[in-house]
Design a protein around this nucleic acid. Structure first.
Lengths: 205, 205
DNA sequence: GTCTATAGCACGATAGAC
DNA sequence: GTCTATCGTGCTATAGAC
């Protein structure tokens, strides 16, 4: 659903990309308008033509990453056949989440690093975007459990927190080249679905 | 192994605790010496009696959290009987890691949030402490696999990254009161060991 | 749409009194 | 061991030329 940018929006996107990289590396307070401008090939005063304050700029960075994740996940899940199993849906969700995080790596890392440090009003506003994303994950897990594909006694809230913690951290360590995104996603899915232990190899309580 | 502090070290610890909270909330650059001093009940100039620069202060915050984790893990693993299974060792490691993270919550959150933003020299120095901690986890996993307790085809590097990502994120969402630390640790361990899926319920490739 | 220049303020760190 | 006072620097944001 990415549509071509109007000419007037191109330099705005260049400013946003630069801001994501600088916020990622220096944090919210440490990222200065001068350095962001330099990264975008501009002078500091010129930034204020595109964004009227530093807070508006960080808000835009936070929202872009989250919106990309929501959109990619909706598209990927909608493309699945109706008869897809819970395992298949979870695998697609893993793959889509990791792929989005890596594709928007500057934004993902900027978000996870500065989220706890931005002014509270900005964080509250951004949280409204996050909540529906968490609900999509919750829905995948509960549906699979209701269908009898997942253990009836599995704690799905803990499962969701484990999954999102593990997946979001990939932004910090994944380096393209050695392992592919699909390898990571399916390796993670295998562990979360089937576990590390040899089946039937001991007591599980 | 926590020994009583010398009188002269008490105010130093008070400064360090204050710094952890302020770095956690405002990031590396956003945490000012004036605000840290106020949190510690001092004036800005007085901080420099205890730490000779802001960089020395953030280094101390980073190192304290990591050293606490290493020490707690060594103690917990050493207390296990020699015949402990891989499952038991992994459960103890989960519980110890989460407990340490929550007990030192200010330091844990400060570390995970500012780590990517401190000057490179500080990060490189601190990384030397982190590496042996990762090795302890690697050892637990590979031993269990060699003994035949874990699947022979499990990717243990991915397993370690999944586990540490999930466990470290607990610092962001865990709130004492509703769920206990042990519930979280054993719930996570159950998923990682046995998986979410009903055993024998479908193809796993 | 980008520039230069600068107002007004806060920063890290130091000096020296007590 | 903590204070006050201050130096030199760098910050966000604005004004107005081009």
């Amino acid at each position: 659903m990415t549509k071509p940018l109007a000419k007037s929006a191109i330099s705005q996107k260049r400013v946003l990309d630069a801001a994501a990289r600088i916020f990622r590396d220096y944090g919210y307070a440490g990222a200065t308008m001068r350095v962001i401008a330099e990264e975008a090939g501009l002078k500091a005063g010129s930034l204020y033509y595109h964004y009227k304050s530093k807070d508006e700029l960080i808000s835009a960075v936070l929202d872009l990453g989250m919106n990309a994740a929501i959109e990619a996940m909706q598209t990927a899940l909608a493309a699945l056949p109706a008869e897809a199993t819970g395992r298949q849906r979870l695998e697609v969700a893993f793959r889509t989440h990791v792929a989005t995080i890596i594709a928007n790596g500057d934004y993902s890392l900027a978000t996870s690093r500065v989220y706890g440090q931005v002014p509270e009003a900005i964080r509250i506003q951004h949280q409204k975007l996050r909540d529906p994303y968490g609900l999509m994950w919750r829905e995948i897990l509960t549906t699979a459990q209701k269908r009898g594909e997942f253990r009836a006694d599995a704690n799905l809230t803990l499962a969701r927190l484990l999954i999102l913690g593990a997946l979001n951290w990939t932004a910090e360590w994944f380096k393209p080249g050695s392992r592919s995104i699909d390898d990571v996603a399916s390796g993670f899915a295998a562990i979360v679905m089937d576990g590390l232990a040899v089946p039937g190899g001991g007591s599980s309580g």
